Computed example of a mutant assay.
Amino acid sequence: MSGVSDRAQAVVALGGGHGLHASLRALRLLVDDLVVDQLTAVVTVADNGGSSGRLRGEFGVLPPGDLRMALAALCHEDHWGTTWEAVLQHRFAGQGEMNGHVVGNLLIVALWEKLGDHVAALDMVGRLLGAKGRVLPMALTPMDIHARVRGAVRHRPDLVTEVRGQVEVATTDGVIESVALDPSDPPVSREALAAIADADWLVLGPGSWFSSVIPHVLVPVLRRALVDSPARVVVVLNLEEQPGETVGFGAADHLAVLLQHAPDLRIDAVLVDSGTLAGEPDDGRRLHEVVDAAGARLVVAALRADDGSARHDARALAAAYERIVVSSDDGGR
């Protein structure tokens, strides 16, 4: 891999849902600024709720919702891009069978049926949108997440039970100890593996930690590709705990549980919001310890949107990504 500052970079971002959407919005800005010249999203395909779950159940297809959100994030901020982004994200109301369905989900499923090829269909939607990057599924078959959860049964705080389904895992009342996938060894597209092999940077997170981020390191062929890739790895931590999945988690816990599921994953940089650590000195010290043990460097920046929500600000996140990518003191592995 050539030096990080002598040319624009190839980046692969892995995740799903709103977290990946935020990351891709930021990375798209770096495409506009010629810092990144090749941007690929590898997206989880385990959703079993809402419009995606209904289409998955009726047609036996990959759940399209997270793929749709990733495509929407890559739309340019001109009239064409903003118009198509709005159309793609439009959710039908009313009282009939279309209630809750999203235009982009229907478009993607229609193209899957028409073309018979997951990747070709997503590429065609991307061309229609003028997307500033490529969107690929994590696997070529729908996945189910199941978790070992402690304390989900009332009055049995030490009882460990199994919770199945992405929606169920994301909303469990217990403490998630580990997650696994079914099928455990699904097929992965050659395009996703090639993008990871050719990347300069791999970005994991932010997002629903157990149901959108960690699943990528649980697919055996995908995990091998991540470990074997010469790319440098950036882990972006969530701004706060997520009800259901990560109640009680601090920044250090997010990183620790990722490494628990993928101890062979080499991490180069860990990006955390400065406000997340403010007032939490113990969590900050633990995070430094986990980062140091992983042989990574910690990058702290103000990343939270100024509206008070638990969302990353796209421009602040883009500035942090640029700082990492073009930094002259990142040292390599």
Rank of each mutant, 00 (worst) to 15 (best):
F59W: 13
L122M: 11
V119K: 09
A86H: 11
Y321G: 02
R304F: 05
G50C: 05
F92P: 03
R223C: 10
G207R: 10
E85I: 01
R297V: 03
D292H: 08
V11W: 05
V219C: 01
E168C: 02
A318P: 10
R68L: 12
V61M: 13
L39A: 08
Q166S: 04
L136R: 13
L74S: 07
L74W: 06
V167T: 00
L258I: 08
D264G: 02
L317S: 04
D78P: 02
C75P: 03
F249R: 07
I145C: 03
A120L: 13
D273S: 13
I108T: 14
Q38W: 08
V167G: 01
D264S: 14
R164C: 02
G130M: 03
S229Y: 09
R223Y: 13
E240R: 15
P187D: 12
G116F: 06
M143V: 12
T141D: 02
N238V: 09
R134M: 12
N48T: 05
A195G: 09
D228L: 14
H118K: 03
D78S: 07
A41Q: 09
G165R: 04
L159H: 13
L265Q: 08
D313H: 11
R150Q: 14
E240Y: 01
A93F: 00
L67R: 07
A269M: 02
V35L: 06
W209L: 15
Q166H: 04
R156W: 13
D264E: 15
V4W: 06
T276F: 02
G57M: 00
D33N: 07
V45P: 13
D78T: 02
R134A: 13
G17P: 07
V299K: 05
A110S: 15
D329G: 06
V227Y: 09
I145S: 01
V11R: 01
M98R: 13
G19K: 13
A180V: 05
L74E: 10
A301T: 04
A170F: 01
R164P: 00
L271R: 06
G205F: 07
S52I: 11
V61W: 12
N99V: 08
R164Y: 10
V257C: 06
I176E: 05
N99I: 00
A293D: 12
H261W: 05
E97W: 09
L55V: 05
A192R: 10
V227G: 09
P215Y: 04
R127H: 12
P206E: 09
V12M: 10
L115H: 15
D185P: 00
M98P: 00
H90S: 14
R156T: 00
G250Y: 02
E97A: 15
I324E: 03
R54S: 12
A294I: 08
V233A: 10
P281S: 06
G15N: 11
G3N: 11
